[in-house]
Design a protein around this nucleic acid. Structure first.
Lengths: 192, 192, 192, 192
DNA sequence: AATGAATGAGATTTCATTCAT
DNA sequence: TATGAATGAAATCTCATTCAT
């Protein structure tokens, strides 16, 4: 049963994965249906048996990506109680997802909803689902009065987002370490 | 002399500005020569009297953008001695430039060199020119041993870059304040 | 026997009817196999079990349509002797068939043989079968010498054909009345 | 001045004419931009310099066609006073326009507004402009009480429309004669 | 300096059709 | 009988670019 369901969706998933990887690497506009088709060994027209349009393909990826990151993120912070440790674990999970080329999550942080006017509202809604999760993490922190939680959240999100552009698996730090380090940079005084 | 040069280049500059605004708002691929032509009241073909190609147009914008941000950035930090105050001033200047829709600088932080294979190396070189300036600012900071200056720099840059996506002139904070706040979030302990 | 043939052909007939309705409403080119498949609750590929091609489907509809209209037409005029009454009854039957959305006959008057080069000759032959019937009706009329029976026939046929475009079941006249009126318009002097 | 205007529009007009001829001969859906491009010696993409879309091209043809038929029709009936003679002249002009392959007017009677959903309303409005003119012609006739002018008009229009399908310049009757004959068929008693 | 007209490559999409199951 | 998956050709349209004027 499960096997059958899996098999019948296997090409669908292959498409989703291949498209996600290309969208994450090159952006939505710069990735053609040809590119995606070639990546899965189909002809461009064949994609339309599975998805009604390029826009719909992205929508499906966004949905899968949000499901993925929400699950991963929640699992990473669930076992921890200390809000600072939760922030570190959350940032680590986030950067892991964003820098994983084979993850559908990275697409969410690469493709802007405005790139797909038809589904702009839907994409924003998907993205918000994750951001709400992230917000609770920041809101738990016992912060000084001078700290604006809103800007703190945007700073962390921006730093994570940006990692997509410079991260290399051959770099000095693992994705986990980068996330943890970012969390600590805001937490502790960095100056002597 | 200056006036003459300016006048004779007025269409050129108008093109640069219009293209920069569009590239920054929609990205390189998503902006067509038609869009740019319409913005300056020309026909698409006429652009080619001024620039040899769309790629060259971007190259010129990148160059102008780097000149602009390096000058602004240097001017902002020059009067200050304290490295932490210099960081705040630098971040403020950076976020101002990035979030100014009419600035050529914002293009540098929106368009990736990999979007323009022909000039990828040149664009990276331009970008590096600014990043070197930014690096000196971070390298001046008296940091604890546990802090990785490399990641600190990337965090600040990422946060600044990201502001392009969410900043609104109607928001609660001015661009200056956002930059300053980002600098302080890493500098001081944020937790009670 | 008859029942069995009918039952075993039920999907076949459903296809024929659905396709006829769509061809009549939108034309041959503008109707896709997808449209037809959806209308009968099949997948597009499944149609090919029943008909070898879209062209063959139309051919079958044309044949059925001609059988239908010839039978209906003949039955309508058979009981009558007066040639003028026969004309009225024939026109009434014709307009009824043409304006009946669920009739295969309407296709004959909507789809031009030239739309289907492969079967152009066959389609014309089918159509001619009915037109011959119609011609006898006109040829029976005792006409003045100045009247060209050829043009008279084409006028009546054109008027009937055209009804497909404007007829509405909610209109002031029933299909029957329209046919009858058309016949009378040519028969009697209309001017005071 | 005139020459220049003419020259600058010559390709535009060539496109309009070529497209009109193809649309009239094969229908809107069945005519591809390739077909049109080939007919005027352009590449398909080049058409889009002149018209924004295939739909817009049809819209322009419809407009030109209505202008043409309105002018021709009005000129044909203007010199005449007797309503029956006016009807004959009007029908003659109409059939001439409909059966002239090189006339943009024929498109109006071949392509249904519903074929172009985007401009359906506009096309109907254009068509109505002519039909209003035709209606006045019928409304002038001194008719017996039993005659429905509405159906009379539709009969004449249908007959004219249909001529497009069977008319041949090599036929026994000229277009003018056909129109005249149609008018007379309704006017006088045809039976002995 | 700029325009008008076109090119040619490539983009997304549609669609009749095929075929193993 | 019908489905699921795909093909391949063609359709509409976009776009960077060219070039005579």
């Amino acid at each position: 049963m499960d096997a059958k369901a899996t098999r019948s969706n296997s090409r669908n998933d292959a498409l989703l994965d291949a498209a996600a990887e290309l969208f994450a690497a090159q952006g939505f506009k710069a990735t053609s249906m040809r590119d995606i088709a070639k990546a899965v060994g189909m002809l461009p027209g064949s994609i339309y048996y599975h998805f009604a349009s390029k826009d719909d393909l992205l929508l499906a990826i966004y949905e899968a990506g949000v499901d993925q990151i929400t699950a991963t993120f929640a699992a990473a912070i669930a076992p921890l109680d200390d809000p600072w440790l939760r922030l570190e674990a959350g940032m680590a999970a986030l950067i892991r997802a964003i820098t994983d080329a084979s993850s559908t999550t990275s697409v969410i942080f690469k493709v802007e909803p405005s790139d797909v006017p038809k589904y702009e509202a839907e994409l924003i809604a998907f993205r918000d689902k994750f951001e709400a999760l992230f917000r609770t993490l920041v809101d738990e922190l016992p912060l000084h009065a001078w700290v604006d939680p809103h800007l703190l959240r945007l700073m962390l999100l921006g730093a994570a987002n940006h990692a997509q552009l410079w991260y290399s698996p051959k770099g000095r730090f693992a994705a986990d370490e980068i996330g943890q380090h970012f969390a600590r940079l805001v937490q502790a005084p960095i100056g002597r």
